[in-house]
């Protein structure tokens, strides 16, 4: 276990270095930040001064080397636009995004698994079909469109929910959270639903497929024949069988929800890191883009690791280290 963790850590460092290099090349390819930062009326002297102040006058590889040296000592650079350490900016915004993603994921799981079970146990019933038809809505309509329709109905027409921003926060374990206050919940409701919709549909479909397979398998039939209650059969035997693929997908999607809540955050003006990322990309604020993606990769690595550990707990046949261990 320890050796496995150490090996994964080594690989992670490699991933982070490679990632940062790719982002550097990518931003370099998109355009020159000076074009966007410097006032268009400024002359050549001012442009040169700004380039020098931001370190953009040096050769590309040297810029990357400066970044690497800083990164090794924990300094990911300062935002070109805000003149704050990039990491500070991101860590300020990340809790809001994680909260949004977390609430959306809880909604998706809390609704998706039960609905999927119903649809899988009674695939030919009206309810089963209705659930499946409804789930199609979830991933066929673009997120931005659904978001605006939600705002039109609940903020503009009915006046029930605020259309933008994050509500009042409370400090819990040193982090500001908003889902414990009523004002916070009111602000959270629409963006969370908007973000959850796609995951909800996906989970319904996965659970249904898994359930349909499981109920036909011998051990479930056997459990039923033994006279176990329906609830116990579903809760223990069926659910256990469908958990592995669901954990995989939740792992994949949780990361993507946190990283790419961009569209939802910009429609609802949610002050999270997705909005920071898109604004940084628009202004080619390279230090923030690089630092942001490094934070996200780290997050992915941690999630993957947790998912792998969960596998081994859920299914003893899976050994940590996967393919490597069996060679």
């Amino acid at each position: 276990m320890l050796a496995y963790a150490i090996r994964r850590f080594g690989q992670s460092v490699f991933v982070l270095v490679l990632m940062s290099f790719l982002v550097f090349i990518g931003v370099y390819a998109i355009g020159n930040p000076i074009e966007l930062l410097v006032n268009p009326q400024a002359d050549e002297v001012e442009r040169a001064r700004a380039a020098a102040a931001l370190g953009l006058d040096r050769p590309f590889l040297e810029q990357y080397w400066v970044f690497l040296k800083g990164a090794a000592s924990g300094d990911l650079g300062r935002s070109f636009v805000y003149n704050e350490p990039a990491l500070t900016l991101i860590l300020d915004k990340l809790p809001a995004t994680i909260e949004l993603a977390f609430v959306a994921m809880v909604m998706a799981i809390g609704l998706g698994i039960p609905l999927g079970l119903v649809a899988g146990l009674k695939p030919d019933s009206f309810v089963g079909r209705a659930i499946m038809a409804g789930s199609i809505l979830g991933f066929s309509l673009p997120t931005f469109w659904v978001g605006l329709v939600l705002i039109m109905v609940f903020s503009v027409q009915l006046g029930w929910l605020p259309s933008n921003g994050r509500g009042e926060t409370m400090m819990v374990a040193g982090l500001p959270v908003s889902f414990l206050t009523a004002d916070g919940l009111a602000h959270l409701a629409m963006p969370a639903v908007n973000l959850a919709l796609f995951k909800l549909s996906l989970l319904i479909r996965l659970t249904r497929a898994g359930t349909r397979e499981a109920v036909l398998q011998d051990y479930v039939k056997f459990a039923r024949a033994k006279g176990l209650s329906q609830g116990r059969v579903i809760g223990v035997h069926v659910l256990k069988n469908i958990l592995i693929p669901i954990v995989t997908v939740i792992g994949l999607e949780l990361g993507s929800v946190i990283a790419f809540a961009i569209v939802t955050e910009s429609i609802f003006a949610w002050p999270g890191s997705g909005k920071l990322l898109i604004d940084s990309i628009n202004q080619l604020d390279r230090p923030v883009i690089v630092a942001y993606l490094l934070v996200i990769v780290t997050l992915f690595i941690v999630i993957n690791f947790v998912v792998d550990v969960l596998y081994s707990l859920l299914d003893p046949r899976v050994r940590l280290g996967g393919a490597a261990a069996s060679h």
Binding site: M19, A29, A259, I281, F300, I301
Partner: peptide, 27 residues
Amino acid sequence: FGGWVDTLIMRIVDIQLSFPAILIALI
């Protein structure tokens, strides 16, 4: 193949999955 081939490919997959679609499209 497993082993280092597997590791290499899966780490590239990690990078790819954390690269936002918008950034790729922009590049």
